[in-house]
Amino acid sequence: MNFKSRTHLFLALIVLLSLGGGTWYWQHQRAKAAPVKDVLVKVFQASEVTQAQLQALSGRIEMSGVLIASETATLRSKTAGTLLRLNVAEGQTVQKGQILAEVDVRDLSSRTEEREAALSSAQRAYQLSLSQHKANQDLSRQGFISETALASSQANLAANLAQLKAAESAAMAHSKQVADAAITAPFAGVVARRLVNAGEKISQEQEVLQLLNPARLEFKAMVDAAASQFLKPGLKMPVQFEGVSQAVMLRLDRMGPGNDAGSRALPVYLTLEQASLPPMLRPGLMGMAQYAYALSKEGLTLPITAVQEEGGKSIVWVIQEGVLKRQTVTTGMKDSQGQRIYILDGLKTTDAVLALRFEGLKEGTKVEVKR
């Protein structure tokens, strides 16, 4: 390679090195000049952050329920046969002792004369044997008949007496069976349901009608077992019924002795205070009863808006060292206004808590509170 060729090669290397160094320097300067991406900071106002307060709340119990008739009856047929007449319709008012339905008992009526004849025959046989026995007693005292004949007379009298009692019992049972063909109202009320129709074949003890007394109503509601400790018979509380403008004052009459398996609710029964029922109240009307009471025990409380339900758990959003954290808490009862709630576990008085519900919060988000 001559001198001229070596010179050209050297110059080419210098150019390549210059281009590479320039490219590196340009990229380095561009990287330095690129803006740094800001870290997201969530800003809250001081009014949106709170702390748990130690205080005693007034409690409130809400109980939803339905107005029911306390006096009801399911009327059954006491005899089998064809339902001859059904004299009432659903919703119809009936009086005590009124005949509501009748079963066809013509086959029973045809045997009435037979029962009466059997009873009459038994009565005559008994009277005859009684007269004969008295005569035999006189003859025995005079020595005209033996003791054996007198004993036979006594046995005949006893047999006829037994037959008479059997005939009387059969006649009474037959008369009752005939009388049972008529189904009567046990009290004044309203027909709630007709369970069969006229002309149908019915069996003995089959349900025919349901009757209720609308003048004797009570409000049946369910209350949480934990809240039932604050209730006792005699307490008065307002009940707001659907479609009724004003609340009706009721008195707690009694509480159920136990709850159903798998349920935390107990039945309670409230009765009307008024001597006469308001005309708008009727069985089946839904309502909500409320009772407010004072709680003497202090505890940590939060605004009800600070507590959220997620996956069956109660959670609050806590700010710790400038970062959002989802905190699971155990809640207690609400106050009577429904504004604050007891926090039984999971929170300290020093914890900063979001007082309101916000959408789209994520755990670990940096937070700034503007004072």
Rank of each mutant, 00 (worst) to 15 (best):
N136E: 12
A135T: 05
A185S: 05
A80R: 15
T184D: 00
T112W: 14
S110Y: 15
A101N: 13
Q132I: 06
N136C: 08
R124T: 13
I99K: 00
R124Q: 14
A181R: 05
R141D: 13
D107F: 13
A73D: 00
L75A: 10
M172A: 10
L83T: 09
S146Y: 09
E116L: 14
A89D: 11
A149T: 11
L128H: 11
A173F: 05
H174W: 02
A158L: 06
T112Q: 15
R141H: 13
R111L: 11
Y126H: 12
I183A: 03
L119P: 04
S109K: 15
S77L: 03
V105T: 15
R106H: 14
S77T: 12
G143R: 05
Y126A: 06
A135F: 03
A151Q: 12
L84R: 13
S146E: 09
L119V: 02
A171H: 06
E147A: 13
A122C: 13
Q92Y: 07
D180K: 03
I145D: 01
Q95R: 11
A135D: 11
V191A: 08
N87W: 04
T82D: 01
V190Y: 00
V196G: 03
T82E: 02
K176G: 11
N87K: 12
G97E: 08
L157V: 05
A181L: 10
K201S: 09
R85K: 13
R85Q: 14
E200K: 03
L139H: 03
Q137T: 13
S153H: 03
T72R: 12
D107R: 13
H174S: 01
A182R: 09
S131V: 01
D180C: 03
K201M: 04
V94D: 09
D107M: 10
K134E: 14
A179K: 06
A158E: 11
G91L: 05
T72F: 02
L83Y: 09
A167L: 01
V88K: 05
L161E: 13
M172Y: 04
L108E: 01
T93K: 08
S152E: 08
G97K: 02
R106L: 10
Q92G: 12
G97T: 02
A125D: 15
G81P: 09
N197C: 00
E113P: 15
A155N: 01
K165C: 04
E168N: 10
A166M: 07
Q137A: 13
L83C: 09
A170K: 02
S169Y: 05
R193M: 00
L161A: 11
R124I: 12
E200T: 07
G199H: 04
S109R: 15
S121L: 15
L150E: 04
S146N: 10
E168Q: 15
T79R: 04
L75Y: 07
V94C: 06
A69D: 10
S169K: 08
S131G: 08
E113I: 15
L86Y: 06
E71N: 08
A188P: 00
A188S: 08
T93S: 08
R85P: 06
S146R: 08
E147V: 07
Q163K: 13
I99T: 03
K201P: 07
H174I: 00
S140A: 15
A170G: 08
R193G: 01
A167F: 02
A188W: 01
Q123K: 14
P186K: 00
N136P: 09
